[in-house]
């Protein structure tokens, strides 16, 4: 069965990575395949789109209007994918990344869906960086024309250079793919579009001299604040910024309120105030 797949997310979430793996796996399974990346001017951030078609017949044109599989990894890309959804589309989305209110904006359009809390599965069991591979695993379970072995092989092939530097990536990605596939197999459909609840991130931290505030809506997790701190009071926390990468947190027992972290922050995401 020919399949039209659209994958959307933030630049940097790995949309194009899983699109490329899917494309190469399809080729490996002897299918015709077409993959068109589409994104704006930013290197990071901004909505990133991938148009993929898998078929046993030639695929002359790379774009399409409605997709059989609509995959979305971020809240912001929900608006973008709206037009691709038909009554027959299966929508696959990261319910740990996308806010419940955002996915419910598409309630009228979405008839069939898989809500996979990829971000949570990844951070609890593996690493936040493989959430996209979990999604790919879910997708692999739907694409019967491509063998799972081909998916597995292609993941390792695509990431070979990175695995060479960090051997543990091999197991991480392999597990992520399997977990995604298993999740899809055991998935019980429901009527309720679940999603992330509004953030309740702690923003401000204080000691008797200083109030230290972080802004998750601006923080990009670059770690310049951590490096600039002369007393090593800042580390990465478990909680995430708007890009879904770890945010800094401060140890107020150490903080001297020098403001170096604030000055170096390119995003205006830290405010240090002396009392």
């Amino acid at each position: 069965m020919p399949a039209k797949i659209i994958i959307a997310g933030e630049g940097g979430q790995g949309v194009q990575t899983i699109a490329k793996i899917l494309t190469k796996a399809a080729k490996k399974s002897g299918k015709n395949v077409s993959y068109l990346p589409s994104f704006g001017v930013e290197q990071r951030g901004g909505v990133s789109l991938a148009y993929i078609q898998v078929s046993s017949r030639p695929i002359p044109y790379p774009r399409f209007s409605k997709a059989d599989f609509v995959v979305t990894l971020s809240s912001r890309s929900c608006e973008t994918i709206k037009n691709f959804i038909s009554d027959n589309s299966l929508v696959i989305y990261d319910s740990a990344e996308i806010y419940e209110k955002d996915i419910n904006e598409l309630k009228a359009e979405i008839k069939r869906f898989v809500a996979v809390p990829a971000k949570n599965i990844a951070s609890e069991k593996l690493s936040t960086k493989v959430a996209n591979i979990i999604i790919l695993g879910v997708l692999s379970a739907q694409l019967k024309d491509i063998s799972f072995q081909d998916f597995q092989d292609t993941v390792l092939m695509e990431l070979a250079a990175k695995i060479k530097i960090k051997p543990e990536l091999k197991e991480l990605n392999n597990s992520a793919l399997q977990m995604g596939a298993e999740f899809a197999q055991n998935y019980e459909s429901s009527d309720h579009l679940t999603g992330k609840s509004p953030d309740e991130t702690v923003r401000s931290f204080e000691n008797d001299k200083v109030k230290w505030t972080r802004f998750p809506e601006y923080c990009k997790g670059c770690s310049l604040c951590i490096l600039s701190c002369p007393v090593k009071a800042i580390t990465f926390a478990k909680d995430l910024n708007f890009l879904g990468t770890p945010m800094p947190i401060v140890d107020m027992e150490k903080c001297i309120g020098c403001g170096k972290c604030m000055q170096i922050c390119p995003d205006g995401a830290i405010n240090v105030e002396k009392k």
């Binding site: 001017v41 930013e42 290197q43 990071r44 951030g45 901004g46 809506e217 601006y218 990009k220 997790g221 670059c222 770690s223 310049l224 708007f242 890009l243 990468t245 170096i264 922050c265 390119p266 995003d267 205006g268």
Partner: peptide, 17 residues
């Protein structure tokens, strides 16, 4: 328009701040 469109850790955005 914030967060701005620059990559994490970009020096250009720091210059712009």
């Amino acid at each position: 328009s914030k967060p701005h469109k620059f990559c994490p850790g970009c020096g250009q955005s720091l210059a712009l701040k």
